[in-house]
């Protein structure tokens, strides 16, 4: 069936916002379309009349350092995120996550805006962004605003953005400072859909052998991408040692809501893998935090 009537290749954010507002029937933003088109074709998404393509908007395709932040346009194809030296330096977790999404063909069109816009609680890009303390820039006809990652969600597969009025412009990530490091890991299953059974992004700030601060993001561990705040607090200010891990896992299990998904994973397996991923991801982030790196100011 015809899954759209009008396809608008927007030239600018303004143009895209106006096209959304002016559309007669239901309208949607499309970037790579690697989620949206399949959802439409397979009847998982309500029908649309107009698709507004943001992938050719120059501002949304920028990837650069802006003052003391890293800006990644919402329409930058994941291939560029993976290949970017800036991302590698400041956001290793994101680079790892983006490199695991799809294959090369998918990464040539898929975007971070779409990964977040699709609003799955275990989207790999979103989990990494959350761990890295990213903020999103949102444009509407009334102007621009910034929002923390978790404010972009209202439930599983439901974005908090207003579909006909708002567009994700891009993401701002704090630059990596001395003693900081991040990592991303996930566990997959060889059968069935290629979405992580469990994934995890970890960011740590380290001073010698002590964790000063940490951010832990996990999916799927609730209706929206999950931050393990109790565990983060437990880690903060403590020397890093393996003996600490069981208590951290316990703290995560106390807060997270792991569920059983038929033909994918039991809640028990997710709980079990949570400990495994924590050890691996935290270790990797910790190691990176120790590495000398060239400061980019």
């Amino acid at each position: 069936m015809t899954i759209w009537q009008h396809y608008h290749l927007a030239k600018s954010i303004e143009d895209a916002l106006q096209a959304l507002a002016a559309a007669q029937g239901p309208a949607r933003v499309i970037a790579g379309g690697t989620d949206l088109l399949l959802d439409l074709e397979q009847g998982r998404h309500s029908p649309v009349d107009t698709l507004v393509d943001v992938s050719a908007i120059p501002e949304m395709a920028e990837l650069e350092q802006r003052a003391d932040e890293l800006f990644i346009g919402a329409a930058v194809p994941l291939r560029r995120v993976v290949q970017s030296e800036l991302v590698g330096r400041h956001a290793a977790a994101l680079q790892e996550a983006a490199g695991l999404i799809g294959g090369p063909q998918v990464r040539n069109t898929a975007t971070l805006g779409g990964n977040v816009g699709h609003a799955l609680p275990a989207a790999d890009g979103a989990i990494a962004l959350l761990a890295l303390g990213a903020e999103a820039e949102i444009a509407s006809l009334s102007g621009r605003r910034r929002a923390p990652m978790q404010a972009l969600y209202s439930g599983p597969g439901r974005s908090a953005l207003s579909h006909k009025e708002e567009i994700l412009v891009g993401f701002y990530l704090p630059l990596r400072a001395e003693g900081e490091g991040s990592a991303f890991r996930r566990v997959m299953r060889p059968q069935g859909v290629a979405i992580a059974i469990l994934n995890m992004g970890v960011w740590v700030q380290r001073r010698q052998e002590t964790i000063q601060a940490a951010r832990i993001a996990i999916g799927p561990a609730g209706p929206i991408p999950f931050r393990a705040r109790a565990a983060e607090q437990l880690l903060a200010g403590r020397p890093y040692e393996t003996a600490l891990l069981p208590r951290v896992v316990e703290a995560i299990l106390g807060e997270a809501r792991f569920r059983t998904s038929p033909h994918r994973s039991s809640a028990d397996y997710r709980r079990h893998m949570c400990g495994v991923l924590l050890e691996d991801t935290l270790n990797a982030a910790w190691e990176r935090a120790a590495l000398q790196h060239e400061m980019s100011r």
Partner: peptide
């Protein structure tokens, strides 16, 4: 760049 033409409008 390689893309999947079946899902490329």
């Amino acid at each position: 760049e390689p893309v999947l033409s079946c899902t490329y409008p």
